[in-house]
Computed example of a mutant assay.
Amino acid sequence: MDDRFAGIREFVTTVDRGSFTAAAETLGVTGSAVGKSISRLEVRLGVQLLHRTTRRIDLTTAGETFLLTCRRILEDLDQTEAFLSTGHEQPIGRLRVDLPTTFGRRHIVPVLLSLTERYPRLVLAVTLQDRAVDVVGEGVDLAVRIGALDAYPDLVARKLGEQKLVICGAPAYLARRGEPLRRDDLFAHDCLIGWRRNLQLGWLLANAESGNDAAYFDVRARHELTDGDTLLDACLSGYGLAQLPGWLAREGLRTGALREVLPDLSTTTPIHAIWQKTRHLQPKVKVAVDELTRLAALETSVFQP
């Protein structure tokens, strides 16, 4: 009888290491043994898992689907073995995390890296982007999202805090163009937009006439910049007004390199950690969520508006 698990570890290790040779070094076998093992797995499944060329190995569509299941199998097995040998559940394996670009790079990645010092068998696979990934379909273990969330029955969300949005300009720009005193004055200004795919262009502004409700307001976009640090640099350099997260504008406001305008239009957006709903939360996800929750509770946390 064929072993249904034969070739799975070789397949996952080859994808992770990028070649048969590198996988062989990790597994302590020869490169040809790894290649033959994966070939036998493909024959048994009746599908091609990898595109092979002389320079690289890429996953096929079937390989991408199968990889998600294989990772779960191996991680569950490693987790159970660790529990049997130590009596404790340990965060083990590859933690796939998706984060907003600038916020994630500045504030979340350092936290996750510190976790790997405490838990050496925890391996990070972090993507930084400003599109909303399909957490379940793309095999993401944990994501941090800024902004209102849609309700998905197969996801769990934990609110970490809020992000305040402020409108800022460099003193030189305001001296040259004047300071806006009301919302409609923005039409006469160069505005820097943090562009995101499939999202409305404009700024999320509080509506003083209807309490603190916020709505998108179309402004005259002078430049569209996808990266938060680039948006900040353009604003500091006097290219226009920008609506910036408070944590990103804080230093410029403190030093006077930026000035806030139209403070009555400032609003906040929520920050959530989200993950797939399961019967048993994997230890690798739990420790990451617990650490983010602990930091969010601190008065000096970046999660506070």
Rank of each mutant, 00 (worst) to 15 (best):
D185F: 05
D185E: 07
D185W: 04
L186W: 01
F187I: 09
A188L: 09
A188R: 12
A188M: 06
D190P: 00
C191H: 05
C191M: 09
L192M: 10
L192N: 10
L192D: 10
I193H: 14
G194M: 08
R196W: 04
R196S: 10
R196K: 13
R196G: 03
R197H: 09
R197G: 03
N198P: 00
L199W: 12
L201Q: 13
L201H: 09
L201G: 13
G202I: 14
W203T: 12
W203H: 13
L205S: 06
L205P: 04
L205I: 10
A206Y: 11
A206D: 13
A206G: 14
N207V: 15
E209I: 09
E209R: 15
E209Y: 15
S210F: 13
S210I: 12
G211Y: 03
G211V: 04
G211T: 04
N212W: 09
N212H: 12
D213E: 15
A214D: 05
A214E: 09
A214G: 07
A215D: 11
A215M: 11
A215Q: 13
A215Y: 11
Y216R: 14
Y216P: 14
Y216K: 12
Y216H: 15
Y216A: 12
F217M: 10
F217I: 12
F217D: 08
D218L: 08
R220I: 08
R220V: 12
A221I: 05
H223T: 08
H223C: 06
H223Q: 15
L225Q: 06
L225G: 04
L225K: 05
T226G: 05
T226N: 06
D227H: 14
D227S: 12
G228Y: 00
G228R: 01
G228K: 00
D229R: 08
D229I: 07
D229S: 07
T230R: 07
T230H: 09
T230F: 03
T230Q: 11
L232A: 00
L232W: 01
A234K: 07
C235K: 06
L236S: 04
S237Y: 06
S237W: 04
S237Q: 13
G238D: 01
Y239I: 07
Y239V: 07
G240E: 02
G240Q: 02
G240P: 02
G240F: 02
L241V: 10
L241P: 15
A242P: 13
A242Y: 15
A242F: 14
Q243N: 07
L244K: 02
L244W: 02
G246K: 03
G246W: 04
G246N: 07
L248D: 04
L248F: 06
L248V: 03
A249M: 04
A249C: 03
R250E: 05
R250A: 10
G252S: 10
L253D: 11
L253W: 11
R254C: 06
R254W: 09
T255F: 04
T255W: 06
A257G: 08
L258M: 02
L258G: 00
L258F: 01
L258D: 01
R259V: 09
R259G: 06
E260D: 00
E260C: 02
E260R: 03
V261T: 06
L262C: 04
